[in-house]
Design a protein around this nucleic acid. Structure first.
Lengths: 162, 162
DNA sequence: TTTTTCTTGACCAAAACTGACCTTAAGGTT
DNA sequence: AACCTTAAGGTCAGTTTTGGTCAAGAAAAA
C-alpha cells in the first residue's frame, strides 16, 4: 500500500485539488523537482505516470524537454464513474460480430453515451482492427470479434472516466 | 514560467489577431527587429518558426533575404475536403512512434480539430493496437508504428469527410 | 514458488538558446 | 553591364537543461 509510487500518486491527486466537477483540470510538474522532493530518481516519476495516469484511466499526459521543461497531466472530469462503468461490461460481451458492433454503437449513441463524431471514430477503429486481423493475421471471425470487444471495452472504460 | 520561444510564439500569434474566420491570413516580420525587441539573437526567431509554425500546426513560412528582406507566416485553413485529406496524409507518416502519436494528437487538439474526449478515444484505440501487436503478435516496434499510422490515418480521414 | 509491481541507474533524446559563418537581394559605383 | 557594399535572412554545430527509455534487480503479491 504505502509504496513510493502510491505516495506520489496520492500527492499528484492532491495537486488536482477537490474540484470534482470541473470538466477538465490539469496540473504541471517538474520531473526533477518532484523526484528530489520524494528522494527518488527522476524515472520513478515516469513509472508513476505510466502506471497510474494513463488514457485508459481518463488522463492525458504531455511533456516538454529542454529549458523550462514540464510535465502536464490533464484529467477529464470525474463523475458517477461507477454507474457508467457498470454499463460497459453489461453492454459489451466477449466477442463482437459485425452486426453486434453496429447495434451496440447505435445503442450507445441513442443513450447519449457517445455522440456522432465519437461513434465514427470508434467505428473506424474497430473496423480497422477487424480488417487487419483478417487480411494480415488471418484470424478467425470469432477471434477478431474478441479483439474488437476488448478494444471497445477499453475505449468505453476510458470514456466512462472522462 | 515560460521560456523565450513561447513568449515569441505568443507575440506572433497576437499579430495574427482574432480574425479566426479569414480564409488565409498572413503576417510579416523583420527578423532583426523582432530579435532586438526580445533581446535575443536573430537565429532565435528561426528556431521559433522551425519549432512552432510548422505545416503540422497549420502554417507555412516564406522569407526573402537582402535589402527589404522579410519573413512571412501564412496560416492555412483547410476548407474543402481535399485539402483536409491531403493534410492528413501530410502529417501522418508511414510509421508512428509513441512520441509521434502524442505530438500529432496534441497538435490536432490545440488546433481545435479534435476535442479532449475524441483525443482520448483515439489515444486508447492506438495504444490498444500497439499493445496487441506487441503482446499478442510479437510485432516489431516499427511494424506496430505502421499499424498505428494507418489506423490514425483512417480515423482522421473519416473525420475529414464527415 | 511464480508472477507482477516497484525501484534504480546508466544511457538516450529533445528543446532552448547562442554565435560564428554563409547566402541572397537591392542599390549604388565604375 | 560588372562590381562592390550593405542589408537582410539562413544554417549549423555546440552547450545547457530538461524529460524519456530500458533493463536488471528487489520487493510484494498470488
Amino acid at each position: 500500500m504505502s509504496n513510493l509510487s502510491s505516495t506520489i500518486e496520492r500527492y499528484i491527486n492532491e495537486l488536482f485539488g477537490s474540484e470534482v466537477e470541473s470538466g477538465k483540470s490539469s496540473v504541471f510538474l517538474r520531473r526533477k523537482e518532484l523526484a528530489a522532493s520524494f528522494g527518488c530518481v527522476p524515472s520513478q516519476i515516469n513509472y508513476v505516470l505510466r502506471s497510474r495516469f494513463t488514457p485508459e484511466k481518463g488522463y492525458l499526459v504531455e511533456s516538454q524537454r529542454g529549458g523550462h521543461g514540464f510535465i502536464r497531466i490533464v484529467r477529464l472530469s470525474y463523475e458517477n464513474i461507477e454507474d457508467r462503468l457498470k454499463h460497459v461490461d453489461d453492454i459489451v460481451g466477449e466477442s463482437l460480430s459485425g452486426q453486434d458492433r453496429e447495434k451496440i454503437l447505435a445503442a450507445l449513441h441513442d443513450r447519449g453515451l457517445i455522440n456522432a463524431k465519437e461513434r465514427l471514430i470508434i467505428e473506424v477503429a474497430l473496423r480497422y482492427a477487424d480488417e487487419l486481423g483478417r487480411s494480415e493475421f488471418d484470424l478467425s471471425p470469432y477471434k477478431r470479434g474478441v479483439i474488437q470487444a476488448s478494444m471497445l471495452r477499453r475505449i468505453l472504460r476510458s470514456l466512462a472516466l472522462a
